Amino acid sequence: MMEIKARGPYSFEETLRYMKRQDDCLYTVKNDAVYKAESFGGHKVLMKLTAGAEDSVQIEVLFNEGASSEDIRDYCIEWLDLGYDLESFYEFACGDQRLGRMVEKRHGYRMVGKVDITDAFLWAILGQQITMSFAYVLKRRVVEYCGHHLEYEGERFLLMPPAAEIAAIHSDVLREMQISRRKTEYIQDVMKGVDAGELSKARLETFEDYGEVLKYMTSYRGIGPWSANTVLMRTLKFRNAVPVGDAGIKNAIRLVDGMDAAPSRAYIDQVTDQWGEFGMYATLYMWETL
């Protein structure tokens, strides 16, 4: 059993609230606990996350094939963004008329990320121009098809397959899953890029400049500004990333600003440009207004 204290405010209840809204096949929420299977260098692990002391999360390792406690701890810190100085964002948000109310309402809410960039890219492509609920259905079909899992006390916990394995799925199989022809091509191309190292996490983490990494990622077919920013937010933790063209941001600004019609792109850019280094968390909290 280990307990991890966040840097600044953290609410496990807010993490649970977010996770319960999702239908992500890569974790399970039950009885106010989160169960997550992961592979660390081929060593399968099953974690159980529950609320810890103030601003903390408690991790119980239910099954472990040999992963180190340090790797598990580091994974959870990255996954739940526990190392981020959330107080600095709160200081900024309290001076912003759009964000101030949500900081109070969702105090301690942190970004639930996607540590595995294969997961992040798959989700970013599947989520393009369809409902979130159907995107989760499609993701489950891909993950279940590959068959990686961990069994514990009669229950099956799915594991994310490697990029090469997803890239190797025949186009006809992906089409039978109801994934469009174009997205099928995007998935295969991007997964090949991840496997080759061109779009690997290690490669993308070498970029320090947001504009440069955005330009590099969007040079690949199937990765537009929205998809790239989604990965930059949830996996690479570029704090100034904002998912350009996101319907949620547009609807949130319209709601908060009391607009009768959807805001223009210029108006949205004017708002989001003010967020600067806090763009990632401003986006996260604006989504909560919906």
Rank of each mutant, 00 (worst) to 15 (best):
K5C: 08
A6P: 12
R7H: 13
S11H: 06
E13S: 11
Y27T: 11
N31I: 10
A33E: 15
K36V: 09
E38S: 02
E38F: 06
G42W: 00
T50R: 11
T50K: 13
E54S: 13
V57P: 05
I59H: 01
V61E: 08
S69M: 10
D71Y: 00
Y75G: 05
Y75Q: 04
I77K: 15
E78S: 13
D85S: 14
Y90Q: 10
Y90I: 14
E91W: 06
F92Q: 13
C94F: 12
G95F: 09
G95P: 11
Q97N: 15
R101Q: 13
G108M: 06
V112C: 12
V115A: 12
T118V: 09
T118C: 08
A124S: 15
L126C: 01
L126V: 04
Q129I: 07
Y136T: 07
Y145V: 10
G147N: 05
E151C: 14
G154N: 03
F157L: 09
A167Q: 04
R175N: 11
E176I: 05
M177R: 06
Q178C: 12
R182A: 00
K183T: 03
E185V: 11
I187F: 06
K192Y: 05
G197L: 04
E198N: 09
K201Y: 01
E208I: 09
L214T: 10
M217E: 00
S219K: 02
R239K: 11
A241L: 00
V242M: 00
V242N: 01
V244L: 12
V244F: 14
I249M: 15
G258A: 09
I268H: 02
D273C: 10
Y281N: 12
T283C: 10
L284Q: 12
L284D: 05
E288C: 11
T289G: 09
L290M: 10
